[in-house]
Amino acid sequence: MEEDYRIFMGKSTIQKYLQLRHSGIKEAQLHHHPAQIRLAAVGKNEMNEHIDEHYCLASVKGVKSFASAFSQDVVLISQDDKAKDPLGIAAVEKTFKTLQTANEPVSVPDHDFPKGAKHKLIPSVYLVINPSNTNDSLRSGKMRIFVRPEYFLGTPCETHMVDLVKITEEESFHEFTYHDGIVKPIWCLLTNGGPDKNPRFLANIMKYVLLFKKLDLDYLTVRTHALGQSAYNPVERSMASLSGKLAGIVFNAFNYGNHLGNMNGQSTIIDKKLARKNFKHAGDHLCEI
C-alpha cells in the first residue's frame, strides 16, 4: 500500500484491518471494518432469462479471447450508463465508502427511467481494460466517468463516440489506447445493448462508422449482452457497489436560484442559463463524491 498508494500503515493497524481466522481470540475483538475482497459474483437468480443469452455470452467471451491474443494492438472498453442521480432539494447529507465486497451481489436494473422532468445527472462510465490480463473477468484497467445533465444532452450514441475520442486524447489512457505512437488499430466495445449503443440500429451504425474513420481503425466490433443480463458487463460489476449508493442521493438543483416555472400545470425550465449553472454545481458535487 505504501508503494502503490503512498499510504503507510503500522503493523498494529494492519492487524486490526485484516480479518483473523479465529473470531474468539482477543485480537479478533479489536478487528473492525471487515471486508473480504475478491471478484464479485453475478447473482443469476436476479436476472431475466433470454433466448439469446448463451449466444451473447459466447460472443463476448470470444472477443475477450481475441483481445488477449492481440493485446498489443487491441483497445478493449466496457461501457454503460449508470443510475441517474436526481436533482432536487437534499434533505440530508450522505457519505459512504466505495468498497466492493464479496458478499454484495450485483443486482441492478439495466435502465433507470426518470420520474421527473429530466432533472437528473447521467454518469457515463467507461472501463478501459488491460487485454493482456489473463484474468477471466478482465476488469483490470482504468475507469473514466463523464457526467451529463439529462435535460440538455442526455446520452445519444454520438455522445458516446465523443467520449471515446476524448479518452484517446487523454495522456493518462495512452498506455491502453496507443502503441508505437499511434492509436491501436483494433477496438472491441462491450455494451449492455441499450438503444443508444446497440449496433442493430442504423443510426448507431453510422456513428460507429464515423468513429472508425476518425481514429483510422482497421477493425471495430461491438458486442452486447442479452437483454436484462448486463450484470455480466465488466463495467457493471466494477460500479455495482457505487451505483447502489448513488441511487439514494439527491443533489441540490437550486444552488444559484430557482430556474423552474409553472406552465400549463407543469414545472418547466424558464431560465436555461441559470439551469446550466445549477446543473454544473450538482455535477461538481457528484464528482467530488
Rank of each mutant, 00 (worst) to 15 (best):
H50Y: 01
T98Q: 08
R276D: 05
L138N: 12
H22I: 10
P123S: 06
I14R: 08
K214I: 04
G141L: 05
P105G: 03
V165T: 12
L190I: 14
N48L: 07
V165Q: 14
Q19W: 13
K97G: 03
T155A: 10
L127W: 14
I270T: 15
L246N: 06
H32D: 10
V183H: 13
I249S: 03
E53P: 00
E46W: 07
M1D: 11
F251L: 14
M47N: 01
L246W: 14
I25S: 12
F96K: 00
G10L: 06
N45T: 06
K44W: 11
G141H: 15
F251S: 01
D110Y: 05
V60N: 10
H281K: 09
F254P: 07
E46T: 09
A90T: 00
N130E: 09
H50K: 01
T191V: 08
R223K: 14
P234L: 00
I129F: 12
Y232D: 02
H33T: 08
D73H: 10
N278P: 02
A117G: 11
Q36R: 05
V108L: 15
L164Y: 15
K207N: 07
T101H: 06
M1A: 13
A58H: 09
R38M: 06
G141V: 06
L242M: 14
H281V: 00
P195S: 14
T98R: 10
H22D: 14
